[in-house]
Protein backbone atom coordinates (compact mmCIF):
# COMPACT_ATOMS: atom_id res chain seq x y z
CA UNK A 1 0.00 0.00 0.00
CA UNK A 2 2.81 2.41 0.82
CA UNK A 3 4.09 2.02 -2.72
CA UNK A 4 0.63 2.47 -4.17
CA UNK A 5 -0.15 5.70 -2.38
CA UNK A 6 2.90 7.49 -3.74
CA UNK A 7 1.44 7.29 -7.26
CA UNK A 8 -1.52 9.25 -8.58
CA UNK A 9 -4.73 7.26 -8.24
CA UNK A 10 -6.36 5.65 -11.29
CA UNK A 11 -9.79 6.48 -9.90
CA UNK A 12 -10.42 9.24 -7.39
CA UNK A 13 -13.84 9.99 -5.93
CA UNK A 14 -14.01 13.14 -3.88
CA UNK A 15 -16.82 14.45 -1.67
CA UNK A 16 -19.50 12.67 -3.68
CA UNK A 17 -23.16 13.44 -2.93
CA UNK A 18 -25.95 11.55 -4.70
CA UNK A 19 -29.68 12.01 -4.28
CA UNK A 20 -32.69 9.97 -5.34
CA UNK A 21 -35.18 12.80 -5.50
CA UNK A 22 -35.22 14.14 -1.95
CA UNK A 23 -33.39 11.16 -0.48
CA UNK A 24 -29.75 11.86 0.26
CA UNK A 25 -28.27 8.47 -0.60
CA UNK A 26 -24.54 9.24 -0.69
CA UNK A 27 -23.47 11.88 1.78
CA UNK A 28 -20.03 13.01 0.74
CA UNK A 29 -17.72 10.05 0.25
CA UNK A 30 -14.15 10.01 -1.02
CA UNK A 31 -12.18 7.01 -2.15
CA UNK A 32 -9.24 6.14 -4.36
CA UNK A 33 -8.26 3.16 -6.42
CA UNK A 34 -4.65 2.79 -7.58
CA UNK A 35 -3.36 0.90 -10.58
CA UNK A 36 -3.34 -2.85 -10.18
CA UNK A 37 -5.14 -2.90 -6.85
CA UNK A 38 -8.23 -4.75 -5.75
CA UNK A 39 -10.25 -2.41 -3.60
CA UNK A 40 -13.46 -3.55 -2.00
CA UNK A 41 -16.42 -1.60 -0.76
CA UNK A 42 -18.34 -3.50 1.90
CA UNK A 43 -21.36 -2.67 3.98
CA UNK A 44 -24.91 -3.65 4.77
CA UNK A 45 -27.86 -3.58 2.39
CA UNK A 46 -28.84 -0.03 1.55
CA UNK A 47 -25.53 1.51 2.63
CA UNK A 48 -25.09 3.03 -0.82
CA UNK A 49 -22.51 0.71 -2.32
CA UNK A 50 -24.31 0.10 -5.60
CA UNK A 51 -25.32 3.74 -5.84
CA UNK A 52 -21.65 4.65 -5.55
CA UNK A 53 -20.66 2.31 -8.37
CA UNK A 54 -23.58 3.41 -10.55
CA UNK A 55 -22.59 7.04 -10.06
CA UNK A 56 -18.96 6.38 -10.92
CA UNK A 57 -20.09 4.50 -14.05
CA UNK A 58 -22.27 7.43 -15.10
CA UNK A 59 -25.71 5.83 -14.72
CA UNK A 60 -26.49 8.36 -11.97
CA UNK A 61 -25.38 11.98 -11.77
CA UNK A 62 -23.89 13.27 -8.52
CA UNK A 63 -25.29 16.51 -7.15
CA UNK A 64 -21.92 17.44 -5.74
CA UNK A 65 -18.36 16.14 -5.81
CA UNK A 66 -15.98 14.86 -8.44
CA UNK A 67 -14.97 11.58 -10.01
CA UNK A 68 -11.70 11.52 -11.91
CA UNK A 69 -10.28 8.70 -13.98
CA UNK A 70 -6.56 9.02 -14.52
CA UNK A 71 -6.80 12.67 -13.50
CA UNK A 72 -9.58 13.60 -15.95
CA UNK A 73 -13.04 14.42 -14.55
CA UNK A 74 -15.74 11.99 -15.71
CA UNK A 75 -18.68 12.81 -13.42
CA UNK A 76 -20.49 14.91 -16.03
CA UNK A 77 -20.34 12.29 -18.75
CA UNK A 78 -22.98 9.68 -19.47
CA UNK A 79 -22.34 5.98 -18.97
CA UNK A 80 -22.00 5.36 -22.69
CA UNK A 81 -19.04 7.79 -22.87
CA UNK A 82 -17.33 6.60 -19.71
CA UNK A 83 -16.96 2.99 -20.78
CA UNK A 84 -14.83 4.12 -23.72
CA UNK A 85 -12.44 5.82 -21.31
CA UNK A 86 -11.49 2.53 -19.70
CA UNK A 87 -13.93 2.07 -16.86
CA UNK A 88 -16.36 -0.80 -16.97
CA UNK A 89 -19.13 -1.78 -14.56
CA UNK A 90 -20.46 -5.31 -14.24
CA UNK A 91 -23.80 -4.37 -12.69
CA UNK A 92 -25.69 -5.89 -9.80
CA UNK A 93 -27.99 -8.68 -10.85
CA UNK A 94 -25.74 -9.34 -13.89
CA UNK A 95 -28.16 -7.76 -16.37
CA UNK A 96 -26.95 -9.74 -19.33
CA UNK A 97 -29.01 -9.47 -22.49
CA UNK A 98 -31.18 -12.53 -21.92
CA UNK A 99 -32.55 -12.84 -25.43
CA UNK A 100 -29.25 -12.41 -27.21
CA UNK A 101 -26.67 -15.16 -27.69
CA UNK A 102 -23.57 -15.46 -25.55
CA UNK A 103 -21.45 -14.23 -28.43
CA UNK A 104 -23.72 -11.25 -29.08
CA UNK A 105 -23.53 -10.30 -25.41
CA UNK A 106 -19.74 -10.27 -25.70
CA UNK A 107 -19.93 -8.22 -28.87
CA UNK A 108 -22.10 -5.66 -27.07
CA UNK A 109 -19.45 -5.46 -24.36
CA UNK A 110 -16.99 -4.29 -27.00
CA UNK A 111 -19.41 -1.79 -28.52
CA UNK A 112 -17.03 1.15 -28.08
CA UNK A 113 -14.11 -0.65 -29.71
CA UNK A 114 -13.19 -1.10 -33.39
CA UNK A 115 -14.92 -4.09 -34.94
CA UNK A 116 -11.65 -5.60 -36.17
CA UNK A 117 -10.37 -6.18 -32.63
CA UNK A 118 -13.47 -7.95 -31.36
CA UNK A 119 -12.95 -11.57 -32.52
CA UNK A 120 -9.54 -11.74 -30.80
CA UNK A 121 -11.01 -10.40 -27.57
CA UNK A 122 -13.86 -12.90 -27.70
CA UNK A 123 -11.29 -15.67 -28.14
CA UNK A 124 -9.46 -14.34 -25.09
CA UNK A 125 -12.67 -14.49 -23.05
CA UNK A 126 -13.34 -18.03 -24.24
CA UNK A 127 -9.92 -19.02 -22.97
CA UNK A 128 -10.56 -17.43 -19.61
CA UNK A 129 -14.13 -18.75 -19.37
CA UNK A 130 -14.20 -22.06 -21.29
CA UNK A 131 -17.84 -22.65 -20.41
CA UNK A 132 -18.79 -19.64 -22.49
CA UNK A 133 -17.18 -21.15 -25.58
CA UNK A 134 -19.41 -24.23 -25.21
CA UNK A 135 -22.42 -21.93 -24.97
CA UNK A 136 -21.36 -19.47 -27.67
CA UNK A 137 -24.51 -19.71 -29.80
CA UNK A 138 -26.90 -20.27 -26.91
CA UNK A 139 -29.42 -17.63 -25.84
CA UNK A 140 -27.97 -16.09 -22.68
CA UNK A 141 -31.24 -16.41 -20.75
CA UNK A 142 -30.87 -20.19 -20.85
CA UNK A 143 -27.52 -20.18 -19.00
CA UNK A 144 -27.30 -21.17 -15.35
CA UNK A 145 -26.83 -18.44 -12.72
CA UNK A 146 -23.08 -19.06 -12.45
CA UNK A 147 -22.64 -19.04 -16.21
CA UNK A 148 -24.61 -15.82 -16.45
CA UNK A 149 -22.29 -14.22 -13.91
CA UNK A 150 -19.27 -15.33 -15.91
CA UNK A 151 -20.85 -13.93 -19.04
CA UNK A 152 -21.53 -10.65 -17.28
CA UNK A 153 -17.92 -10.41 -16.17
CA UNK A 154 -16.59 -11.38 -19.58
CA UNK A 155 -18.89 -8.83 -21.19
CA UNK A 156 -17.58 -6.13 -18.86
CA UNK A 157 -14.00 -7.13 -19.73
CA UNK A 158 -14.70 -6.88 -23.47
CA UNK A 159 -14.28 -3.12 -23.34
CA UNK A 160 -10.66 -3.69 -22.19
CA UNK A 161 -11.14 -1.63 -19.05
CA UNK A 162 -8.30 -0.24 -16.99
CA UNK A 163 -10.64 -0.43 -14.04
CA UNK A 164 -13.27 -3.13 -13.67
CA UNK A 165 -16.05 -2.48 -11.17
CA UNK A 166 -17.95 -5.55 -9.98
CA UNK A 167 -21.24 -5.12 -8.15
CA UNK A 168 -22.14 -8.15 -6.02
CA UNK A 169 -20.68 -10.78 -8.36
CA UNK A 170 -21.42 -13.56 -5.86
CA UNK A 171 -25.06 -12.65 -5.34
CA UNK A 172 -27.43 -15.60 -5.49
CA UNK A 173 -24.74 -18.15 -6.34
CA UNK A 174 -24.06 -21.50 -4.68
CA UNK A 175 -20.98 -21.51 -2.40
CA UNK A 176 -18.87 -23.47 -4.86
CA UNK A 177 -19.62 -20.92 -7.57
CA UNK A 178 -18.81 -18.08 -5.19
CA UNK A 179 -15.36 -19.62 -4.69
CA UNK A 180 -14.97 -19.86 -8.44
CA UNK A 181 -15.97 -16.24 -9.02
CA UNK A 182 -13.47 -15.04 -6.43
CA UNK A 183 -10.68 -17.13 -7.89
CA UNK A 184 -11.48 -15.55 -11.26
CA UNK A 185 -11.20 -12.12 -9.65
CA UNK A 186 -7.77 -13.06 -8.30
CA UNK A 187 -6.71 -14.28 -11.73
CA UNK A 188 -7.89 -11.07 -13.34
CA UNK A 189 -5.93 -9.12 -10.80
CA UNK A 190 -2.84 -11.20 -11.49
CA UNK A 191 -3.16 -10.43 -15.18
CA UNK A 192 -3.07 -6.70 -14.47
CA UNK A 193 -6.73 -5.67 -14.19
CA UNK A 194 -7.54 -3.15 -11.46
CA UNK A 195 -10.74 -4.03 -9.61
CA UNK A 196 -13.22 -2.12 -7.49
CA UNK A 197 -15.42 -4.74 -5.86
CA UNK A 198 -18.71 -4.27 -4.04
CA UNK A 199 -19.74 -7.29 -1.99
CA UNK A 200 -22.14 -8.49 0.64
CA UNK A 201 -19.84 -11.41 1.25
CA UNK A 202 -17.36 -9.33 3.26
CA UNK A 203 -15.28 -12.32 4.30
CA UNK A 204 -14.44 -13.32 0.73
CA UNK A 205 -14.07 -9.74 -0.42
CA UNK A 206 -11.59 -8.84 2.32
CA UNK A 207 -9.58 -11.97 1.62
CA UNK A 208 -9.12 -11.14 -2.04
CA UNK A 209 -8.71 -7.35 -1.74
CA UNK A 210 -5.68 -5.15 -1.08
CA UNK A 211 -7.60 -2.34 0.54
CA UNK A 212 -11.16 -1.86 1.72
CA UNK A 213 -13.72 0.81 2.53
CA UNK A 214 -16.65 0.19 4.84
CA UNK A 215 -19.87 2.05 4.02
CA UNK A 216 -22.77 2.76 6.34
CA UNK A 217 -25.85 4.79 5.39
CA UNK A 218 -24.18 6.81 2.69
CA UNK A 219 -20.89 7.44 4.47
CA UNK A 220 -17.52 5.76 4.56
CA UNK A 221 -16.96 4.84 8.18
CA UNK A 222 -13.75 2.83 7.99
CA UNK A 223 -10.94 2.23 5.55
CA UNK A 224 -7.60 0.52 5.46
CA UNK A 225 -5.71 -2.56 4.39
CA UNK A 226 -8.10 -5.42 3.75
CA UNK A 227 -6.15 -7.77 6.02
CA UNK A 228 -6.36 -5.26 8.90
CA UNK A 229 -10.10 -4.84 8.46
CA UNK A 230 -10.55 -8.59 8.25
CA UNK A 231 -9.26 -8.79 11.83
CA UNK A 232 -10.85 -5.60 13.08
CA UNK A 233 -13.30 -6.24 15.91
CA UNK A 234 -15.96 -3.78 14.76
CA UNK A 235 -15.91 -5.14 11.21
CA UNK A 236 -16.01 -8.71 12.44
CA UNK A 237 -19.00 -7.97 14.59
CA UNK A 238 -20.94 -6.04 11.97
CA UNK A 239 -20.14 -7.84 8.73
CA UNK A 240 -18.39 -11.11 9.36
CA UNK A 241 -20.89 -12.53 11.84
CA UNK A 242 -18.41 -13.56 14.50
Amino acid sequence: MSEATTRAPLLAVSDLHVYYGAIHAIKGISLEVYDNEIVTLIGANGAGKSTTLNTIAGLLRPRQGTVTLNGAPIHGLGASRIVGLGLSLCPEGRRIFQQMTVRENLEMGAYSRPAAEIPASIEEMFQRFPRLREREKQIAGTLSGGEQQMLAMARALMSKPRLLMLDEPSMGLAPILVEQIFSIISELHASGVTVLLVEQNAQMALQVADRAYVMETGLITMQGDASDLLHNDAVQKAYLGS
Binding site: A57, G58, L59, G78, A79, S80, R81, V83, G84, S88, L89, P91, R95, I96, F97, Q98, Q99, M100, E104, E107, M108, G109, Y111, S112, R155, A156, S159
Partner: peptide, 19 residues
Protein backbone atom coordinates in the same frame (compact mmCIF):
# COMPACT_ATOMS: atom_id res chain seq x y z
CA UNK B 1 -27.87 -5.60 -32.22
CA UNK B 2 -27.57 -2.42 -30.17
CA UNK B 3 -31.31 -1.91 -30.71
CA UNK B 4 -32.03 -5.36 -29.32
CA UNK B 5 -29.77 -4.65 -26.36
CA UNK B 6 -31.55 -1.35 -25.66
CA UNK B 7 -34.94 -3.05 -25.92
CA UNK B 8 -33.91 -5.52 -23.21
CA UNK B 9 -32.15 -3.26 -20.73
CA UNK B 10 -31.42 0.42 -21.34
CA UNK B 11 -29.10 0.78 -18.36
CA UNK B 12 -27.02 -2.24 -19.25
CA UNK B 13 -26.91 -1.10 -22.89
CA UNK B 14 -25.59 2.26 -21.78
CA UNK B 15 -22.89 0.54 -19.74
CA UNK B 16 -21.79 -1.16 -22.96
CA UNK B 17 -21.22 2.24 -24.55
CA UNK B 18 -24.43 2.27 -26.59
CA UNK B 19 -25.92 5.73 -27.02
Amino acid sequence: KAMRAVSEDKGAAELMGIN
